[in-house]
Design a protein around this nucleic acid. Sequence first.
DNA 1: ACTTTTGCACTGACCAGTCAGTTCAAAAAC
DNA 2: GTTTTTGAACTGACTGGTCAGTGCAAAAGT
Lengths: 211, 211
Amino acid sequence: MTIRAMESSSGSTRREATRQKLYEAAVTLIAEQGFSATTVDEIAERAGVAKGTVYYNFASKSVLFEELLRHGVGLLTASLKEASERTAAAGGSKTDALDAMIRAGLVFIDRYPAFTQLYVAELWRTNRAWQSTLMVVRQQAVAVVENALREGVESGEFHEAIDVSLTASALVGMVLVAALDWKAFQPERSLDDVHSALSRLLQGRVSGTRA
Amino acid sequence: MTIRAMESSSGSTRREATRQKLYEAAVTLIAEQGFSATTVDEIAERAGVAKGTVYYNFASKSVLFEELLRHGVGLLTASLKEASERTAAAGGSKTDALDAMIRAGLVFIDRYPAFTQLYVAELWRTNRAWQSTLMVVRQQAVAVVENALREGVESGEFHEAIDVSLTASALVGMVLVAALDWKAFQPERSLDDVHSALSRLLQGRVSGTRA
DNA sequence: ACTTTTGCACTGACCAGTCAGTTCAAAAAC
DNA sequence: GTTTTTGAACTGACTGGTCAGTGCAAAAGT
């Protein structure tokens, strides 16, 4: 009985690969059917793994879901930050940063539509085990947008009377719903189509006052 | 076994009252827990009614839910139409009509937060029994917004290059998400606060180009 | 070299509990 | 007297979670 080889955070390849397969299986099934309607047997089968393996890797169905949530929103947050920072580094305005984040959001949803669907379906639900987890990760993501707005107000680019948190919510909602509708009802449209429609709205070129 | 009395849309009062109680019980439970996690026994208990009554009034749990969906979106659509028509009658612009619809949407969500939550949670799900029902009622609601946009384009008020359906989705999403975040995370804010934040965004007073 | 041991990762049959939906006789409401 | 509701018992399918056991690659022992 010796000390096992230390496995770095990147994880022992086998186990991490199995967890990844389980995430992928769970995300589509839960997006389609909802958490309760999705059985652990289904997840295991879709992942090509025995049921016991699910419980070997995750303490429970809920924990699997919670970790999936953290994993997914983590990717989104990183992508938004990257877009924001890249724009700033290129000397862009805060409006440019918001626009870049809109695009990053669309790219994310384009790549992980099932995850987005599931996130939206669970976010405002109360009395659920993972509610607190969800609030934390949501706040991390929304904060990136809020920061851009706040900095834009401070630099005088945006009107100081804007309500940062409500506006951030609205912008997130705009992207989220437009993108989900795109994927669900008009999948033939291009990402650029959606992006330009949202850009136009952001920049007040729909019903902007000329003042 | 006799032929049931045809009940007109207004319905026999007693039965209609029971159905209403069941709608109200189901809407909050399903919003909190999701459809599958909500049991018929719970719904009956919350409604203060025997389980048998549920099955006397609705063919199944799914049918109860589908009718609830139709009922709720019907109310929203009527409210949006009313707001739009009222504005038009008062000689307002299409921007005013959109603004009035935003307010009507917020009032609706303020009154029926659980319904909204549940609607959002189910809308983009595929493979569900009520998917087709949901698509129909969604289209009815979104069409009201699309019409205002289209008419605004025709009258020259809005730029002709706007994408009506994507912009409508985005506007709906803006209202939906801002309102749900309001209710879930900042319930102390007033409806007017939320409305003015959204108005500002609609009218390009956040990062509007001065062109 | 070779055998033996270790323990991680995985397996899948099994269990105890849950739930939608049914049934129906009797009561209540109209 | 007809419609609607009650409430409890029942069924049969399904589900989350368990657990004793398997396979195997690396480590330890010789």
